[in-house]
Amino acid sequence: MKAKNIIEPGRESQTVVSASRIILTLAIAGLISGVAIVGIYEATFDTIAENRARELRDAVFTVLPGIDSMREMVYREGQLVEGKAAIEEPSVYAGYDSSGEFKGYAIPARGPGFQDTIVLLYGYRMDTGRIVGMQVLESRETPGLGDKIFKDPEFVAEFNSLEVQPGIVLVKGGSRAGNEVDAITGATISSRAVVRIINQANEKWLSKLTLQHPIRSNGKGEK
């Protein structure tokens, strides 16, 4: 045993293996693998769905301060209705405070940044016509420069009360007017991308948004 611990499996000898044996082996291997994959998918499905929902909820609650519950709204046949969006179907989230009063919409938007697509979510209040919060969900902007669009608290705070009419404008050296955002030094392109993405989303959405009726706390919203 000590001389040769490595076992030679019959493969070096010239044994002929029948085709059915090969097919059977692969079929059994595939079958077992399939069962294992379905098993792990089922076992983790709930947790994964829960994680995704919580992530989205956290983001919506951040960009719409003061809300307590939310509902997904889809734009279908010319109007905004409550419902789950199908893939590629445009949707926004309506937020309500603890007494069920409608507060505003959280609008997802995406567009090209300096490196890759930037995906963000921003909150919009219809009563004041202002953006009340912005959060970048996905981006691959340059660390140290472009990533300031979500790491620089001053830049993020520019979106806490921002007029959307007549369009958001990027400026340098301090924002003054209600619709101005101060660009990040050294990350002009990324800042400009964020403003452009929001302006484009506004163009697409603002005319379609309608005031929502308040909901009474009957647990209708996703809590």
Binding site: P9, R11, V17, I22, T25, L26, A29
Partner: peptide, 11 residues
């Protein structure tokens, strides 16, 4: 020893 050598990589 169960895996035929012809399809070992696939397995």
């Amino acid at each position: 020893s169960w895996i035929p050598k012809q399809v070992r990589i696939s397995c």
